[in-house]
Design a protein around this nucleic acid. Structure first.
Length: 295
RNA sequence: GCCUGGAUAGCUCAGGUAGUUAGAGCACAGCUCUGAAAAAGCUGGGGUGGCCAGUGCAAGUCUGGCUCCAGGCA
């Protein structure tokens, strides 16, 4: 059986993934699966830069608005839903374009990571969160020496998840295991200089502020999404929420969104650079050529 | 003009009684990641200590002068 083809389009925030993907999808008979950990939530539109119906230009999009922002959506749910969407697209003899900036989500599809079947236990997590990291690390060391050896011992999230698995299964954390799907993957990365990105982020921020981003956050809060939860989303949601609670001024809010977005872009690039197979492109023409050769 | 406070990393500031290679937060640079990933963490480079002189074995730290800044009094 011939392998199915999958085209991945990634890049740092504000690099222009949406525009490029719609152009390419239109040209090559494709449909888009979003790989964005914030666009999955309903009601988070302006702040996440979610494509509008009009911008889609008739190209079907998947994995947008699939979750309630009051609840936490995770990579495992993403993996299942995205794989289903990809199959559906393939069945229609169309080309799936996996598009987004959440490297972890993209990796879960492309590398097919098998994540231990232990659901998040929020009560346990809450309890463990109260303990200092040193103590968490000691606990893990006793229960699973192998995992303790390689884990980031300052990172409570990682420690708590490891403990969650061990305590639930009474077994050590299983070794990393991958079940690679049969995709032929072409990965395109949008290449931007730091200077360009800073400018793009700044312009986009102004646009979002003028397009009702503050109202959007107010509305989310009114509909029952707690400030704490909103702050957890990071970037625009975190700082607009802080502003609305009078924790920071308007100017501080804008400055922080800008700065943190720049940092975020950097973190994304750190992640993306690890995959040496990514083709870094500058424009639509370069992308088009690569896709033509690939298909 | 006088009084007071200040002048230390790109920025905001810590640095009893003078004593090995002057610190923090932020910024900057680099990185980690396998069920919260726009999250959560880690590492690193940086300073002729406003300037000049003096005292001391030793001065960011004491003394004097000068320059600048903030507030107050005139």
């Amino acid at each position: 059986m011939a392998n199915y083809k999958l085209i991945v389009i990634l890049g740092p925030t504000a690099s222009g993934k949406t525009d490029l993907s719609i152009k390419l999808a239109k040209k090559f008979n494709g449909e888009v699966i979003s790989a964005d950990s914030r666009q999955v939530y309903k009601g988070m539109d302006v702040g996440t830069g979610k494509v509008t119906k009009k911008e889609m230009k008739g190209v079907p999009h998947y994995l947008l608005d699939v979750a309630n922002p009051k609840k936490i959506f995770t990579v495992v749910q993403y993996q299942k839903l995205a794989l289903t969407a990809i199959k559906k697209i393939q069945k229609k003899n169309k080309i799936p374009f996996l598009v987004g900036g959440t490297g972890f989500y993209i990796q879960s599809i492309v590398d097919g990571a098998v994540i231990p079947e232990v659901k998040p236990d929020w009560k346990l997590r809450k309890r463990l969160e109260k303990k200092p990291v040193e103590e968490l690390f000691e606990m893990l060391e006793k229960l699973d020496n192998r995992r303790a050896l390689i884990i980031d011992k300052n990172n409570p999230r990682r420690l708590i998840r490891a403990l969650e698995i061990v305590l639930s299964t009474k077994q050590p954390v299983p070794a990393v295991f991958q079940n690679k799907p049969n995709f032929d993957v072409l990965t395109l990365g949008i290449n931007k200089t730091k200077e360009d990105l800073v400018e793009l982020i700044g312009k986009r921020l102004l646009r979002r502020l003028n397009n009702g981003m503050i109202e959007e956050v107010k509305k989310l809060h009114k509909s029952g999404v707690s400030w704490k939860r909103l702050e957890e989303f990071g970037l625009e949601y975190r700082f607009v929420a802080q502003y609305l609670q009078n924790k920071i001024t308007y100017q501080e809010m804008a400055d922080k969104i800008q700065k943190e977005s720049e940092h975020y872009a950097k973190r994304q690039m750190t992640w993306f650079k690890r995959d040496k197979k990514t083709h870094w492109i500058k424009n639509y023409t370069e992308a088009k050529k690569l896709v033509e050769n690939f298909l």
